[in-house]
Design a protein around this nucleic acid. Structure first.
Lengths: 296, 296
DNA sequence: GTGAAAGCGCTAACAC
DNA sequence: GTGTTAGCGCTTTCAC
């Protein structure tokens, strides 16, 4: 029997047992370095626990998200790990009504009582800004990300809190909105550096925009960090390889995936347990894109 | 009935129909930017064709690869997209014996007649080297990747072909082995630049090592590209954001995923059709890390 | 057309 | 222990 290399039909097994060992993972873009790391944490942990993972990319499209979710439900997945695209309160509620285990990851889904794992973006925003303040900077700009995403908003709030706590007057013209892409960081920096009273430091709400800031500064003949300090957010692999290497706020990306998966499998065991919220702190990684303010 | 939001049980459907709409994707590391892009091509195309994809990371570990494959077979996947870890001829043969549709991606699996989609690494290696030659360089170094991987070996062969065709004497001390990681590029460059008769140009067999070369050169006070030209391979997103932006050989990463998926679904339709081999050409993306040789 | 019945491959329950 | 059987939810066939 072993010689024939017999492999039981999991479809029949699962149908009979009324359960599967497959989990669905819904993310905006698995090629985005941040989600790619989270996904690896998820896949590794699932593999250890004998679960397979179905990969679903939404590109932030709510319709695609619904289609994927329907497919996952039809395939009777054990549970779903969910990074929301757009407004998703209703979707999560529907899942819960069907008693499908769900864990929300990275982006909060408002107005619904659901297991959640996310980064403490507020604390991260504070860390970045405080670091610049500690270096003596007082004119600190901030380039935020997409408007309707909770991570971006919270990072900005952290920035504002530090300004307030340290008594720096909030200057609206020093806060620009980006879209988490390189070009938006570049353009925002061009605008900031043309300011009558330009900033001496910039907190970009992700690494890609921070790299854009460095490019713009370099192009204008400014040296980073001597003439302009730059802090990013995420600590993607790229951040070590920029010139200069980027000081940034590191999210525990892989760990987010691990914890979310563990939480989901616990939820599968006990669908009626009280919901949990896990908020993971960030750490500051100081490289060479920030330096003390010099008065010259 | 629609009001009850009824969703048919795909397990039962598939069991009855003796087919599924799930495909397995086996890759070394989905967080590696190259595979991440390929995976997106796969996921997008599968989604369009109403198929789900199960993500499997092997980390180059043959045992993990076997475990994953077994799981996929048990789950009766429609087919498997396969980037090989190590020696995998036997595994592919087993799959074929079971009449499981397989398409081999990126890395050739020797001695087996199987559908395959890969980059023309040889042509890419030629392109990179020819570009440097056209700029006037004659002392051109090459930093290769892992020894037993066909892509790496083919790129090196392309390099050697151009040397031979242009009449450059092959200098063994100018060819170093890396491991596709940043550090190995950095270290190889340190060694090359300490050479009694150092190269004026380096072809690194992937972008990450090329960035390592740039870092090492910069550290030694050399300017890229004025003092040293550097070409990479892959054209990952990072390559646009290095300082200077990297000249590199672009692989059609996303397209590889698309074509492989289409080939697999065609194979599912007709398991006995003749096998096909698709070899996709690379393109040279000239940025700012290469310049004409100056005699000073 | 509409309805009943068999069976996909397995597991769990039950009888021996 | 060992063997038999019902049934998971669906599709497909066949009878009406």
């Amino acid at each position: 029997m072993n010689q024939l290399d017999y492999k039981p039909n999991a479809l029949a097994q699962n149908l009979r047992r009324q359960q599967t060992y497959t989990i669905g993972m819904i993310v905006p873009d698995s090629a985005n370095p941040f989600f790619a790391e989270v996904a690896r944490g998820i896949e590794d942990t699932s593999f250890e626990q004998n679960h397979s993972v179905i990969l679903c990319n939404t590109d932030g499209d709510v319709d695609k998200q619904t289609t994927h979710t329907d497919l996952l439900i039809k395939n009777q997945v054990a549970g779903i790990l969910f990074v929301a695209a757009g407004i998703s309160t209703e979707l999560v509620e529907n899942l819960q009504a069907r008693r499908v285990p769900v864990v929300v990851v990275d982006r909060e889904v408002p107005d619904v009582n659901v297991d959640t794992v996310l980064t403490n973006h507020l604390q991260g925003g504070r860390l970045a800004t405080k670091h610049l303040w500690d270096l003596g900077h007082r004119r600190i700009a901030c380039i935020s990300g997409g408007s309707n995403l909770s991570p971006s908003a919270e990072r900005l709030t952290g920035y504002q809190q530090i300004l307030q706590e340290t008594g720096i007057l909030f200057d609206e013209s020093l806060v620009l909105r980006g879209d988490f892409q390189y070009v938006s960081g570049y353009e925002a920096a061009r605008q900031l550096l043309a300011h009558a009273d330009p900033p001496t430091a910039v907190f970009a709400c992700n690494d890609l925009m921070a790299v854009g800031v460095i490019s713009a500064a370099t192009e204008l003949g400014l040296r980073v960090p001597q003439d302009l300090s730059v802090v990013g957010f995420d600590d993607v692999r790229l951040a070590s390889f920029t010139n200069p290497p980027l000081t940034t706020v590191a999210q525990p990306k892989y760990e987010i995936g691990v914890i979310a998966t563990e939480m989901l499998l616990a939820r599968v065991q006990n669908i009626d347990a009280p919901t949990r919220l896990k908020r993971l702190d960030t750490t500051l990684v100081i490289r060479q894109s920030t330096a003390p303010l010099t008065s010259d």
